[in-house]
Amino acid sequence: MKIKLLYFGRPRDTLKRPGETADLPPGIATVAEMLAWLRQRGPEWQAELAENRVRCAVNQELGALTAPLHDGDEVAIFSPISGG
């Protein structure tokens, strides 16, 4: 399935990209599983996308990393919220 990925905060800064369109291989059904797949890209991804370091939003709603994914979803991955 195709996912519109956006990065904010520390991941965006460290991985040096605002986002991408990801074509997920079959078998990935949740945000957590997608993160595991992204971590395989290399040591920086491994460090930056560790589950305890990131939060997510699916279709602009905050969600748990266990949130299911559907084709065409917009998924944002970011460091913990720190506005205000």
Partner: peptide, 26 residues
Amino acid sequence: IMDYLKTSAPFWKKEQTAQGGHWLGT
């Protein structure tokens, strides 16, 4: 409104000090 903004509105703050830049957590 402030308490909920601090924990659920998607904003992120990066602080620049002599030690460098770091993204604050919640």
